[in-house]
Amino acid sequence: MVYEERNTWAGLIVMAIVIPAYIVVVLQTAGGGPLTDVDWWPIMLWTIVAGIVLTILVSIAWGIIAGMRDPDGVGKSDQRDRDIAHMGERVGTAFLVLGGLAVIVLCAFEADWFWIANAMFFGFAISSFVGGIARVIAYRRGLV
């Protein structure tokens, strides 16, 4: 497994943990009451920071393990990696645009800050996750 693919997997694994954790914490904080009463921004901020830090730590640990197995190929990247990364970004951007459109619609209807922020947050999260899935598929099946 090449460097870029390992990092993609690390991001997907961490995201599959932190996004559901965010949802659970927000729902528990609401305690059956309205979600708009939740003090959402510290939870969201900690989720983002934890996701970044955990992705870095998983990537480093996985890189160390891979380096012990194949010291020559640990950080190598080639044109195929760049093409796959570019394709993954294009796929993910479509979902980011949908998240941005959702934010515009919510603003037009003067929705609560909670809904606006979460629409953008999940737009970024889904964009990153779907782009990562597209990259992994491209690594496994090749670019068509």
Score class of each variant (00 low, 15 high):
V53E: 03
Y3I: 00
S77F: 02
P34Q: 05
P71A: 09
V130P: 02
R135M: 00
V25P: 06
R69K: 12
M87F: 14
G142A: 02
F129D: 10
A61W: 06
T93K: 14
G92E: 09
A21S: 10
V130E: 01
I52N: 09
E110I: 02
I116H: 00
L106T: 01
L143V: 09
A125M: 14
P42K: 08
Q79G: 04
N118S: 14
G11T: 02
T36S: 13
L45V: 06
G11P: 02
G123Q: 02
D72Y: 11
V49N: 05
I64F: 15
V74F: 00
T36F: 04
M15R: 09
I19D: 04
G75L: 07
R90F: 09
L27K: 12
N7Q: 10
W115I: 13
G123W: 04
W113H: 04
L143E: 11
F109N: 08
S127P: 01
I48C: 07
C107V: 01
A85W: 11
F114P: 08
A61G: 12
G51F: 06
F95H: 06
R90I: 15
E4I: 02
V91G: 00
I137C: 05
I19P: 03
V25R: 15
R6Q: 02
V58C: 05
G92C: 10
G31W: 03
M44K: 14
P71Q: 10
G32T: 03
A134C: 07
Q28A: 14
D37W: 10
A134P: 06
W46Q: 13
Q28I: 05
Q79W: 08
P34A: 15
R90Q: 15
G33A: 14
W41C: 02
P34Y: 08
R69N: 09
V2R: 09
A119L: 12
I52C: 07
D72N: 10
E5L: 01
I19Q: 08
R82G: 07
V25K: 12
V97F: 13
I43D: 07
I126E: 06
F121Y: 14
V25E: 06
G88E: 01
V24Y: 10
V53F: 05
